[in-house]
């Protein structure tokens, strides 16, 4: 846009120096994450209220989730957070090749998570556990079991959507790393990408026990 934008490397025209730019982008990302907390917060609020209303139905419905797959995905996602953190670290040191490799690992782990999730969804489809007119549930006749699946699909679906967006962003950052964009003074974009990815991980950290593990003890 302007002739200001090209001086320095990666400094946008509206900022005085890279420090100010890094500060601003970091704050911006954290504000975005605060926004995300409230977004998922609405779901968690609904979950809490309905589970307190229908504890038995929720526990029984929860048995239809596959703990092994959920647990596997938890490990995958935490591992992807590790590779993401290492990717940011590599960017801080200006090692673009390592940035690429770590981001690629993160991207692949994210895909593994999504593929497993897709299998889980498919399984629910086959079992008839998709809420709506075709919902079938063997066992409890309490209609509130459906509420559990409402929430399960809304929560994991919103989470998966965030993963997909994160995957798209990772591709962009991999390309940038290939172009050797990052150096000791300019790594902010990778850092805020990391913040987003870790946030998505944290959401799953709460979803896993709340959705998969509740009622495990009386199964």
């Amino acid at each position: 846009m302007s002739d200001h934008s090209s001086h320095g490397s990666g400094l946008a025209h509206q900022f005085d120096d890279l420090d100010q730019q890094l500060d601003a982008t970091t704050l911006g990302m954290w504000l975005f994450l605060a926004q995300e907390i409230m977004f998922f917060g609405g779901l968690f609020a609904a979950y809490t209220i309905y589970r307190n209303w229908h504890p038995e139905a929720f526990a029984e419905a929860s048995h239809h989730l596959d703990i092994k797959l959920g647990g596997f995905n938890t490990v995958v996602l935490i591992f992807s957070s590790l590779t993401m953190a290492l990717g940011v670290r590599a960017a801080q040191m200006g090692k673009n090749k390592a940035v690429f490799n770590y981001l690629f690992a993160t991207f692949m782990l994210g895909n593994v998570f999504l593929v497993v999730k897709a299998f889980e969804y498919h399984h629910k489809w086959v079992e008839g556990l998709i809420p709506g007119p075709w919902f079938r549930f063997e066992g409890s006749t309490d209609p509130a079991v459906q509420m559990f699946f409402n929430l399960y699909f809304a929560m994991t679906g919103m989470h998966a959507l965030h993963m997909i967006i994160g995957g798209g962003l990772l591709i962009y950052f991999m390309v940038q790393a290939r172009k050797n964009r990052y150096h000791e003074g300019y790594y902010g974009p990778v850092e805020i990408m990391g913040l987003y990815w870790h946030f998505v991980d944290i959401v799953w950290i709460f979803l896993f026990p709340l959705l998969y593990l509740l009622g495990l003890h009386n199964s």
């Binding site: 957070s81 026990p209 709340l210």
Partner: peptide
Amino acid sequence: ALAVAGCKATVVIWYFME
């Protein structure tokens, strides 16, 4: 469950998210 999840989240925020 929530306490453990809270611990995990705190660890991620404190260390991974720096």
